[in-house]
Design a binder for these strands. Structure first.
Lengths: 158, 158
DNA sequence: GCAAAATAGCACTAAAATGGTCCTACTTTT
DNA sequence: AAAAGTAGGACCATTTTAGTGCTATTTTGC
């Protein structure tokens, strides 16, 4: 849990490779060689990314793939959505609660809220940062401090 | 992805039920009836929670389970760890990078950092909040604002 | 106009994680 | 000794995930 699927990880690596020279077309096989990911898998992922509008493809002899937007304009959330669709932390959340403890059970509510917080974080991470071509590294420094302020107590022990 | 397994969700519900009257022993079957989770599954989960030290068990005729600590001292991170072990967002992270783009590829690094931020958030959420018996609701308000400050740019579009 | 080089889309298979069940052993109380 | 409970492990079914293969379709170059 709280895991990124391997294909999604591959996708970020492929996009990072494309982010190197955003203007240049790269073929699926070239990307496969460069990243050491199996060629059919690369193909499959690029098709999904194309459908999601993150890369544009050119067919024909000198065809290939390139980013649809500059790396700073592509968020990690967009990549995850492209590969895995919009995901929720739990499925109980949207369902009709048929457990006896509905009224006292905040569980689903809290998960959903946390889920939203995570999605927002993902939204702030850009491909430029993932690819390491952005001067400003991705940082999440104040999360802990903020959480503590919000919950009004010192951190509990694990 | 970014999903909590159903068993982990069940575990939080069971713990929330136990958090109602922390002093009281509850049997596995009683919890099953109360939460509408299948009895063998409840049993299985409680065993795992016991091994992880989140609940204590008493055997014998009037045995049962109860929380090992007050609800405010049990974090969501501890629950996840108990059910799923310490999780990483990707496995590439700890491995020896054998892709050609190592030097320019920050992918693993960023994922790890995000993973850490999420874990810290989970660490701040207490069972008391999950169970709704705490006056202060779990909130993650400033995450977005903080991220924006950290990355120094306006939010990208999805 | 035809061949080559590329992507597009689909279906299918194999493997792994997940969820759930069952059975047997141990412990405490009556 | 019996009953009520937990402990632990083996086991199976289902679903999800990862990967492969095949057949179009499009563009370039000769």
């Amino acid at each position: 849990m709280l895991r990124i699927s391997r294909l999604t990880d591959y996708a970020t690596v492929l996009l990072a490779a494309l982010a190197g020279e955003p203007a240049q077309l790269k073929t699926a096989t070239a990307l496969a060689e460069h990243t050491h990911i199996a060629a059919p898998t690369v193909s499959k992922i690029l098709k999904q990314l194309q459908r999601a509008g993150l890369v544009v493809s050119t067919r024909g002899t000198h065809g290939g793939y390139q980013l649809a937007r500059p790396p700073a304009q592509i968020s990690a959330a967009a990549i995850l959505d492209a590969l895995e669709g919009p995901v929720t932390l739990t499925d109980c959340a949207a369902g009709e609660g048929h457990c006896d403890i509905e009224h006292t059970c905040q569980v689903a509510r809290v998960w959903q809220r946390l889920n939203l917080a995570i999605r927002r974080s993902l939204h702030e991470v850009t491909l430029a940062q993932l690819a390491g071509i952005d001067a400003a590294p991705a940082r999440f420094p104040a999360l802990e401090r903020e959480m503590r302020a919000a919950t009004g107590r010192p951190p509990v022990r694990p």
